[in-house]
Simulated scan of single mutants.
Amino acid sequence: MSASAAGVAPFSGDRAESIEMIRDSARGLLGTDLARVRKLRFTEPGFDGGLLRQMGEAGWIGLAVSEEAGGTGLGMGEMVALAEEAGRALAPEPLIGCALSAHLLAAAGATELLGQLLAGEAVVLTAWQDRANTLSLASSAEGARAFVPMAGGATHILWPVAEGKGVALHLLTRDQVTITTEATQDGGHLGTVAPKPFSGHGPGQHIADDIGAALTEALDRAALATAASLLGGMEASFAMTLEYLKTRQQFGKIIGTFQSLQHKAADAKMQVALTRAAVEQAAAALDDGATGEAAQAIVSRAKARASEAGMLVAQACVQLHGGIGYTDDYDVGLYMRRAMVQAPALGGAALHRKRFMALAPETEE
Rank of each mutant, 00 (worst) to 15 (best):
E235R: 15
A222E: 08
L34D: 08
Y244P: 00
T126E: 03
Y335W: 11
L74G: 02
E217G: 08
A284N: 05
L215V: 09
A316I: 03
S140F: 10
F238I: 03
L40Q: 08
R36S: 14
G49V: 10
R145K: 15
H189P: 12
A99P: 00
A236W: 01
D328E: 14
A295N: 07
A302Q: 09
E93M: 07
A309V: 07
G202P: 03
L231M: 06
A3T: 10
A154K: 05
E17P: 00
A223C: 04
F11Y: 15
A294L: 10
P197I: 05
A227Q: 03
T363F: 11
L158D: 06
T181K: 05
G75A: 04
V272L: 12
L100Q: 13
I324D: 08
D48E: 13
K39R: 15
Y330A: 08
G204C: 07
R221L: 12
I61C: 05
A26L: 02
A273P: 06
V161H: 08
E68C: 06
Q129Y: 04
A228P: 07
T257Y: 10
T247G: 02
A349K: 11
G289W: 00
L82I: 10
A110P: 00
T43A: 10
A3N: 14
G348C: 01
G62T: 06
A278E: 11
G152H: 00
G252Q: 02
G97Q: 03
F198K: 01
E293R: 14
V148F: 01
A306L: 09
D267V: 14
A283T: 01
T363K: 11
L30E: 03
M79K: 11
A83E: 05
L359M: 11
S18R: 14
P160D: 06
K165A: 14
L51A: 13
D329L: 10
A228G: 05
L51Q: 13
M79R: 15
A213K: 13
D210V: 02
P45E: 04
F258T: 05
L74E: 13
G73F: 07
H156Q: 06
A358P: 08
L261Y: 11
A225N: 06
E84H: 13
G204I: 00
G7F: 07
N133I: 05
A266Y: 04
D328A: 15
F238H: 12
A343D: 02
G71T: 06
P94A: 01
L117P: 12
S237I: 06
A309H: 13
Q185R: 14
R145W: 06
D328Y: 04
A102I: 10
E44C: 08
